[in-house]
Nucleic acid binder design. Sequence first.
DNA 1: GTTGTCCTATTGTCCGACAATCCGACCGAG
DNA 2: CTCGGTCGGATTGTCGGACAATAGGACAAC
Lengths: 270, 270
Amino acid sequence: MAQPRARRSTAGASATSTAAKAHRELEPLRFEPVERDPAYTRVARAIEAKILARELRAGDALPPEMDLAQQFRVHRSTVREALRRLESAGLVKRPPGAKRMVVSRPAAAELASGMRHALVLHDVTFVEVWEAMMVIEPEVAALAAARRDQQDLQALTAVHEAFKSSPKGDPHAVEVVARFFELLGAAARNRVLVLAKQSLARVLAPSLARMIDKVPQARSRIADAQRRIIGAVHDKNAEEARRWMSKHVRDFKRGYELAGISPDTPVSVD
Amino acid sequence: MAQPRARRSTAGASATSTAAKAHRELEPLRFEPVERDPAYTRVARAIEAKILARELRAGDALPPEMDLAQQFRVHRSTVREALRRLESAGLVKRPPGAKRMVVSRPAAAELASGMRHALVLHDVTFVEVWEAMMVIEPEVAALAAARRDQQDLQALTAVHEAFKSSPKGDPHAVEVVARFFELLGAAARNRVLVLAKQSLARVLAPSLARMIDKVPQARSRIADAQRRIIGAVHDKNAEEARRWMSKHVRDFKRGYELAGISPDTPVSVD
DNA sequence: GTTGTCCTATTGTCCGACAATCCGACCGAG
DNA sequence: CTCGGTCGGATTGTCGGACAATAGGACAAC
């Protein structure tokens, strides 16, 4: 009883206000589409706004669903739909084995997965991703060289060793390559660039695996490039790091060509 | 009646199988946390998988919620929660004034909004964003110079004019600046870079507005830079485009310094 | 052809319910 | 007094079922 009334009244209000606003333009008589978004959207937006405004800070527990439902004058199911919305955006999450939801800041991983979906579904091709890497990675390497600390160096070396010692046909090797890029990003101390580049190496991974399989010299060339880059980063030689990374990324493309993989191959998922 | 049974059986099954698998290693006896994710998550993942595998293609209408519920042997509410998940990821959406949901590819705007949330909530500072722009924008300009067509030029010029003719204290001017960067991205014909850079100019917008207000010569410097960049793009002079964009972005930082805005100011929302 | 009417499928929202389980409080044994 | 058990309330995950609003289509009337 109460709910149909509420629903009708909100819909009616928005319709009439829109109509009233547009009523005076007589000439072409254009109306903007009457905005009519479901309750779960509004609830989600309301909570999202509170989070972005820092009224709810990361780590805070959200009020119980029932409380929210009462505050918004909405059924619990509706609140739940809104929560799923926020959950998928990474704004709230449930710590493993906890009951209440807590506010959280979107992690890099979530952004990256969204990016991956977008790239895959838009049939983005290998060249496009490669081009982006050509733009970003050398600079990241240069920044990393300038800012790395001892731990970064250590981690990079460890991954490099892991790559060298990975067995011949190991499908895990590409994973290690991706990790190398990630660590370099971390050493560059720029979260924006990290976010931007995060997904690049990852979406390339599947085809990279095929490439490494087909091109015998690929492994050693990658290992060599990594060694040189680590060397430059160790010496805090930004220019050198940039140059070698540039060469390294360029090599990827050459590898693809040698492997007979077309540059227009769309990146794929897994 | 049927549902509690189903719930119990899945939980029990995963628990016992995990235990059985780990049962033989006696030494440290490590168990991985028993995975127990709610039904709405699984449903969402199942549908997501079908989309990424192209079994559901962009534009296809999803089956009605009730059908999905029956197929998954799950209540309609559960399906709905899963759908909200996908909706927020941009994998499905409802075209305005349509009933069924249709599969869609995540638009740049959604990715960008996620990125914005992340940057804001992680207290990313102005310099970090600026640094990313320094890396990306000049190369984008260079690519744009190489690949622009007549329409790109036209659009860029239009926006440039709009900026020049925007009144003195117009808060809309920063919007126009952001648009300029977007158009340049479009002209560069690389969707990966567009996605990566999309949110940069936007998160800067609020503080950019303050900067323009405080620094009298900012407007004319921006206008000048735009003119030069458009000129280089017009001449297909990549090198020149890169140089001017580099200068342009560097100028932003100088503007901030002149305006007395600290480089460590966190980017804000709206 | 356009407009009005009617039907059906489907969504948005609600109600109410219940099992599982987390959490904190309380309590007895060492 | 700390530590491991026990118990009850709070909260979530999920379900069945309901109903109004509306998109979409078929079909008749103008």
